[in-house]
Design a protein around this nucleic acid. Structure first.
Lengths: 255, 255
DNA sequence: CCATCTTTGTGCACGCGTTCACAAAGACAT
DNA sequence: ATGTCTTTGTGAACGCGTGCACAAAGATGG
């Protein structure tokens, strides 16, 4: 991820591939659901179906954590929940601050999913003096001026940025300077951070644009579907791209 | 990551790699900013820096769209904005419905980023009869009973699900049955959809858990830092953080 | 028109992630 | 014990994405 891939191999940090880490929360959620139904064990096939992934992939993912399964039986649900939680670091408390209490920030503050997994909203911070003291989700909003003090007093290492794009980098810099080393960014901007700081981005606009791309593609294919026996037109098949990269008419250009 | 989708044969992408598609919105944003500053052309190096990616990667990405650059000069900003917009399907209007007008749904409705790129909130839908008619972000909330009619009347093909996890699959099924073929899911659930329907997931809880994993790892390494020689954190301000392959991704609600 | 300089476009190699397919391991019945 | 059956754990092949490094293309200046 954002870890220094630029220079060194990163010590093969833990041997757990990034892609696997990203799926662990998914498994954990499925396992938690099973646990609540008091299901004692589950096979890789069943769990994979519940998590929406390939069973071989799931087994390989778990193999990175160790051999926690029993051949011929499956995995012990409770045990696996514990192991994954521990691996993800969810057995400890993670104080989090949310900066930027607008529509989105407030929604995040009210979001119940935080507490459910060891994440605790330690503070809400906003630049608007009028918001100071006003409670949102039961937590009084504090002013940006106190950002550094809040971070340090609460030992916060994870920050959530929900400010407008223009303020994001500045807020980011202050968070990092104050000791935050992981940032979840909702502002539509590319954040620049020093090595050792992780940034994950959540961008609604980008998600929609990606959907639009596929939607357009589907619409195009569908239009061709009315033709005689819809054989795969050259324009829609991919793989060996020996043909020119622009298999489409470039249309015109605006100056 | 490419990404968080549900199933996908991926065998139908018209030659443009999924990873590239996911970056196009990023380039578009950077280009739009340049355009507003009336910058006529940019080199791959400059644009790559602005978008936070490797310049070779950017050039390769653009090569999938065609040869839109001029050697020795760079890319024409306006022209590129147009080409990418067209490729992403942003030159047309995309009516979108948001289902589930709670904290998050309301925040999404108020989010300005939608309209900025051809996405238009055609309707807000909620299961609570008490919400019916109540305006949110200037748009009256409609009841779930009319979901099918709303989808069809507005020609909606993109739906946003911001309901609690328990209702998500049911809402999803109805959206798909009514003709929606692209879904942006904020509910913490794995949605099951028929072939041909794209699902992108935004899960806040998962994002935080991934950050927690790395945070824990960092804490562990730091504890060892007093030991063998030191491979201190190497470069400090190396430039922007390099994002993971999927770059995008996402966030969410209660589990 | 030729030389030089800049920047694109891409061939190539490498590494990560995914998936198949199967041997090994254990449960369970006889 | 022995055999059968189930399910894990993983070796190996494959495909995708990334980034280097360089030749080709065009601009620019003499």
């Amino acid at each position: 991820m954002a870890t220094g891939r630029t220079h060194r191999p990163a010590t093969r940090s833990r041997g757990i591939p990034e892609a696997t880490v990203a799926r662990l929360p998914l498994y954990l959620r499925a396992l938690t659901a099973l646990s609540e139904r008091s299901v004692p064990t589950v096979s890789s096939e069943e769990l994979a179906a519940a998590a929406g992934v390939n069973s071989a992939k799931l087994r390989k993912d778990f193999s990175y954590l160790g051999s926690y399964g029993t051949r011929g039986v499956g995995y012990d649900v409770e045990y696996l929940v514990y192991q994954i939680s521990r691996e993800l670091g969810l057995t400890q408390d993670w104080p989090v601050v949310i900066v930027g209490i607008g529509n989105l920030g407030a929604a995040l503050a009210n979001y119940g999913g935080f507490a459910s997994r060891g994440f605790r909203v330690a503070a809400l911070i906003d630049a608007d003096p009028a918001m100071a003291g006003k409670p949102v989700a039961g937590i009084p909003v504090q002013h940006t001026d106190d950002l550094e003090k809040i971070i340090k007093d609460n030992g916060v290492s994870i920050g959530v940025i929900a400010t407008p794009a223009g303020a994001a980098q500045q807020v980011c810099d202050r968070l990092v300077a104050a000791g935050v080393t992981s940032i979840l960014n909702f502002a539509p901007t590319v954040l620049s951070v020093p090595d050792g700081v992780d940034v994950r981005k959540v961008d609604l606009s980008i998600e929609l644009q990606i959907l639009a791309f596929h939607e357009q593609r589907k619409a195009g294919e569908e239009a061709m579907e009315t033709m005689p026996d819809g054989l795969p037109s050259a324009a829609t098949t991919q793989e060996s791209a020996d043909k020119g990269p622009d298999g489409d008419v470039p249309a015109v250009m605006p100056a």
